[in-house]
Protein backbone atom coordinates (compact mmCIF):
# COMPACT_ATOMS: atom_id res chain seq x y z
CA UNK A 1 0.00 0.00 0.00
CA UNK A 2 1.09 3.56 -0.57
CA UNK A 3 1.06 4.56 3.09
CA UNK A 4 3.38 1.65 3.78
CA UNK A 5 5.90 2.84 1.22
CA UNK A 6 5.79 6.34 2.65
CA UNK A 7 6.31 5.07 6.16
CA UNK A 8 9.20 2.85 5.14
CA UNK A 9 11.04 5.64 3.33
CA UNK A 10 10.52 8.02 6.25
CA UNK A 11 11.88 5.30 8.52
CA UNK A 12 14.91 4.91 6.27
CA UNK A 13 15.38 8.66 6.30
CA UNK A 14 15.40 8.71 10.09
CA UNK A 15 17.77 5.74 10.23
CA UNK A 16 20.09 7.50 7.79
CA UNK A 17 20.10 10.60 9.94
CA UNK A 18 20.91 8.59 13.04
CA UNK A 19 23.69 6.74 11.24
CA UNK A 20 25.09 10.04 9.99
CA UNK A 21 25.02 11.42 13.49
CA UNK A 22 26.93 8.45 14.84
CA UNK A 23 29.43 8.72 12.05
CA UNK A 24 30.03 12.36 12.96
CA UNK A 25 30.14 11.62 16.66
CA UNK A 26 32.35 8.56 16.50
CA UNK A 27 34.80 9.09 13.71
CA UNK A 28 34.93 12.84 13.20
CA UNK A 29 34.63 14.28 16.67
CA UNK A 30 36.60 13.47 19.77
CA UNK A 31 34.03 11.04 21.08
CA UNK A 32 35.81 7.84 20.29
CA UNK A 33 39.22 6.59 21.09
CA UNK A 34 40.60 4.78 18.17
CA UNK A 35 40.80 1.13 19.00
CA UNK A 36 42.15 -1.55 16.80
CA UNK A 37 42.53 -4.92 18.41
CA UNK A 38 45.58 -6.06 16.54
CA UNK A 39 48.65 -4.57 18.17
CA UNK A 40 50.33 -3.86 21.45
CA UNK A 41 50.38 -0.69 23.51
CA UNK A 42 53.55 0.89 24.79
CA UNK A 43 53.90 4.21 26.53
CA UNK A 44 56.48 6.94 26.59
CA UNK A 45 56.97 10.01 28.77
CA UNK A 46 57.81 13.31 27.17
CA UNK A 47 58.65 16.70 28.67
CA UNK A 48 56.77 18.31 25.86
CA UNK A 49 54.74 16.76 23.09
CA UNK A 50 54.06 19.95 21.15
CA UNK A 51 51.05 19.47 18.92
CA UNK A 52 50.87 15.68 19.10
CA UNK A 53 47.34 14.34 19.04
CA UNK A 54 45.49 11.13 19.63
CA UNK A 55 45.62 9.09 16.42
CA UNK A 56 48.79 10.79 15.26
CA UNK A 57 51.16 8.55 13.37
CA UNK A 58 53.87 6.49 14.96
CA UNK A 59 56.56 5.78 12.40
CA UNK A 60 59.90 4.10 12.15
CA UNK A 61 62.23 5.01 9.28
CA UNK A 62 59.28 6.85 7.77
CA UNK A 63 56.98 3.85 7.76
CA UNK A 64 53.75 4.09 9.74
CA UNK A 65 53.88 1.33 12.35
CA UNK A 66 51.18 2.46 14.75
CA UNK A 67 48.97 5.21 16.16
CA UNK A 68 48.89 7.31 19.29
CA UNK A 69 45.95 6.08 21.34
CA UNK A 70 46.02 8.21 24.45
CA UNK A 71 47.69 11.31 25.79
CA UNK A 72 47.69 12.22 29.47
CA UNK A 73 49.52 14.52 31.77
CA UNK A 74 51.18 12.97 34.79
CA UNK A 75 51.05 15.58 37.53
CA UNK A 76 53.58 13.72 39.67
CA UNK A 77 56.39 13.58 37.17
CA UNK A 78 55.23 16.73 35.34
CA UNK A 79 55.44 14.88 32.08
CA UNK A 80 53.13 13.94 29.28
CA UNK A 81 52.35 10.23 29.07
CA UNK A 82 51.74 9.11 25.51
CA UNK A 83 50.32 5.67 24.85
CA UNK A 84 50.71 4.29 21.38
CA UNK A 85 49.48 1.15 19.77
CA UNK A 86 51.96 -0.51 17.50
CA UNK A 87 50.87 -2.93 14.85
CA UNK A 88 51.43 -6.51 15.90
CA UNK A 89 53.43 -7.32 12.79
CA UNK A 90 56.09 -4.83 13.94
CA UNK A 91 56.81 -6.65 17.18
CA UNK A 92 60.60 -6.48 17.13
CA UNK A 93 61.42 -3.07 18.57
CA UNK A 94 64.30 -3.42 21.07
CA UNK A 95 63.61 -2.16 24.60
CA UNK A 96 66.08 0.67 24.20
CA UNK A 97 64.23 2.09 21.25
CA UNK A 98 64.07 5.90 21.36
CA UNK A 99 60.86 7.82 20.71
CA UNK A 100 60.87 11.42 19.58
CA UNK A 101 58.17 13.87 18.71
CA UNK A 102 58.88 15.04 15.17
CA UNK A 103 57.23 17.46 12.80
CA UNK A 104 56.45 16.69 9.20
CA UNK A 105 57.55 19.72 7.28
CA UNK A 106 57.97 23.12 8.83
CA UNK A 107 54.38 23.60 9.95
CA UNK A 108 52.96 20.15 9.40
CA UNK A 109 51.44 17.85 11.93
CA UNK A 110 53.48 16.16 14.61
CA UNK A 111 54.15 12.48 14.91
CA UNK A 112 56.24 10.06 16.88
CA UNK A 113 59.38 8.69 15.33
CA UNK A 114 60.81 5.44 16.69
CA UNK A 115 64.55 4.83 16.54
CA UNK A 116 65.36 1.16 17.23
CA UNK A 117 68.16 0.43 19.69
CA UNK A 118 70.37 -2.66 20.07
CA UNK A 119 68.95 -4.72 22.97
CA UNK A 120 67.98 -8.36 22.53
CA UNK A 121 64.70 -7.91 24.38
CA UNK A 122 61.76 -6.55 22.43
CA UNK A 123 59.07 -4.12 23.52
CA UNK A 124 55.83 -5.77 24.49
CA UNK A 125 52.36 -4.82 25.72
CA UNK A 126 52.52 -2.33 28.60
CA UNK A 127 56.21 -1.50 28.30
CA UNK A 128 57.53 2.02 28.61
CA UNK A 129 59.98 3.60 26.22
CA UNK A 130 62.67 5.22 28.36
CA UNK A 131 64.56 7.18 25.79
CA UNK A 132 62.50 10.07 24.60
CA UNK A 133 63.09 13.32 22.90
CA UNK A 134 60.51 16.06 23.25
CA UNK A 135 58.99 18.11 20.54
CA UNK A 136 61.01 21.01 19.32
CA UNK A 137 59.16 24.14 20.24
CA UNK A 138 59.92 26.86 17.75
CA UNK A 139 59.80 29.70 20.27
CA UNK A 140 62.38 27.99 22.49
CA UNK A 141 64.77 27.43 19.62
CA UNK A 142 64.46 31.02 18.52
CA UNK A 143 64.96 32.04 22.15
CA UNK A 144 68.08 29.94 22.49
CA UNK A 145 69.41 31.20 19.24
CA UNK A 146 68.94 34.83 20.26
CA UNK A 147 70.35 34.05 23.72
CA UNK A 148 73.44 32.44 22.30
CA UNK A 149 74.04 35.25 19.82
CA UNK A 150 73.62 38.13 22.22
CA UNK A 151 76.87 39.29 23.77
CA UNK A 152 75.36 40.47 27.03
CA UNK A 153 73.72 37.82 29.19
CA UNK A 154 70.27 39.34 29.33
CA UNK A 155 67.90 36.75 30.60
CA UNK A 156 64.66 36.36 28.79
CA UNK A 157 62.62 33.60 30.15
Amino acid sequence: MNTRKVEITVGLFAAGAIAAFFMLAMSVSNMSSYNDDKGYVVSADFDNIGGLKVRSRVSASGVVVGRVTDIEYNSNSYEAVVKMKIDSKYNKFPTDTAASVLTSGLLGEQYIGLDPGAEDQYLKQGDTIELTQSAIVLEQIIGQFLYGKSSDDKKTK
Binding site: V28, S32, Y34, K53, R55, V68
Partner: peptide, 14 residues
Protein backbone atom coordinates in the same frame (compact mmCIF):
# COMPACT_ATOMS: atom_id res chain seq x y z
CA UNK B 1 43.90 8.46 6.20
CA UNK B 2 44.86 8.46 9.86
CA UNK B 3 45.82 12.10 9.96
CA UNK B 4 42.67 12.92 8.02
CA UNK B 5 40.57 11.46 10.83
CA UNK B 6 42.91 12.20 13.72
CA UNK B 7 43.20 15.89 12.99
CA UNK B 8 39.44 16.11 12.74
CA UNK B 9 38.92 14.15 15.93
CA UNK B 10 41.37 16.29 17.78
CA UNK B 11 39.77 19.57 16.81
CA UNK B 12 36.07 18.77 16.33
CA UNK B 13 34.26 18.73 19.62
CA UNK B 14 31.06 16.74 19.97
Amino acid sequence: YGSFWSQAQAKVDL
